[in-house]
Design a protein around this nucleic acid. Sequence first.
DNA 1: TACTCATTCGACAACCGGGT
DNA 2: ACCCGGTTGTCGAATGAGTA
Length: 296
Amino acid sequence: MQTHVPTTPFGRRSLTLAHVASQIVATSRPPEKVVHKWRIYQAICLARPKLGVSERSLSVLNALLTFHPQTALTGEDDLIVFPSNVQLSLRAHGMPISTLKRHLAALVDAGLIVRRDSPNGKRYVRKGWEGESDRAFGFDISPLVARSEEIEGLAEEIAAGIRAVKLARERITLCRRDIAKMIATGIEEGVPADWPGIHVGFRAIVDGIPRSPTLEQLQEAADTLSQLADDVLGLLKSHVKTSNLDPNEAHSEPHKQSSNPNLFIDLEPASREGGTARAVPDQQTPRGGEGRGAIP
DNA sequence: TACTCATTCGACAACCGGGT
DNA sequence: ACCCGGTTGTCGAATGAGTA
């Protein structure tokens, strides 16, 4: 829930220490620094979870950035934009004013912008005697310049996390496919083992993966499945050794499909991992004959 | 399917400075 | 003093996503 900024005996809006810290950061940027505003905005979008702002808040930030005429934000320039809430709302795709105000507060709380309040609370630029901009009151976007390295670092962390999740999901998909194939083979070839028990254990691992798993949960599941795949492979290998099968014969003889529908173990595609794992292949035999290796 | 929880939205009240 | 136009925060209802 969005926390409301409390009023205080000293004003309608309180100033927190975090806001003071943002103001210090905003004023401490080196003048020679140049940041591309849409590039830093992209990094903020990526680092959003770590910055603690919502997607809608980023829409407001986007609208706010359009009010700065330059694409390059420098440490030297005055980086204050002063749109009215109505104008800001229009550029935020008609976002309701009250919602807009909440998101502006969220952006301030996140230290991405700093309020530069005028005496009457309105946003405007005060002109000097010769018509030049003397002082602007509105939102200071200079924290984006001052914090650019930090924000880009956070974005890189998030990107690395996304890559790690993708890798873990790939591992899970591959293990699931391999294990399903090996269980089906073990049953069909009559390899002596507790295949129903192995299948139950396999399903328990797969079903234990939450709908929205963390990276740690995915890696743990991938490790467990990988260990199970090794164990099942070991069973098949030891059977091959004890049976003293001719490898050439073993390769040339196609698998037969069992008539027992129970043999289709884990035919469910690994859609939860978003991978390309498919069901145990339809192992049609050209020679016909009765199925082997039905579940005991 | 029902429940919980966060978010969004609209309405409202209050404050402030400027103009009449 | 009153009105206007700007700002702010607060409240409750509606909505949508996630979960058991």
